[in-house]
């Protein structure tokens, strides 16, 4: 639980640093993308902190490249 609060605090700090200047400059698209990535990051962080498994991108790549791996590198 403590870890989750920690992540949320970090997210709050990031928000505090970035959002005001983005609003001031009226960068709408940047703001949207920023929020998207921030929420992905916070989401992944919380899932990890709670000890739930996160799908491993490396396993996904292995799945895709398996034919290639088998022919050349094994």
């Amino acid at each position: 639980m403590l870890k989750v609060i920690g992540i949320l605090l970090v997210a709050a700090v990031i928000w505090r640093v970035e959002v005001p200047s983005l609003l001031q400059k009226n960068y709408k698209k940047e703001l949207v993308v920023f929020l998207l990535f921030l929420s992905i990051g916070v989401g992944l962080g919380i899932v990890q902190a709670l000890g739930k498994p996160i799908p491993n991108p490396m396993d996904f790549l292995t799945f895709i490249f398996n034919p290639l791996n088998d022919t050349f590198f094994r």
């Binding site: 970090v10 640093v17 960068y27 940047e30 990535f37 992944l44």
Partner: peptide, 30 residues
Amino acid sequence: IAQVLNLKDYRPLTMPLGLIVMVLSLVIYP
């Protein structure tokens, strides 16, 4: 990422991506 999405500044993405990279580093190699 900033260039693909045609953003005016890349820096706002740095910290959120840092968070993502951080979590990924803990899961990609068991």
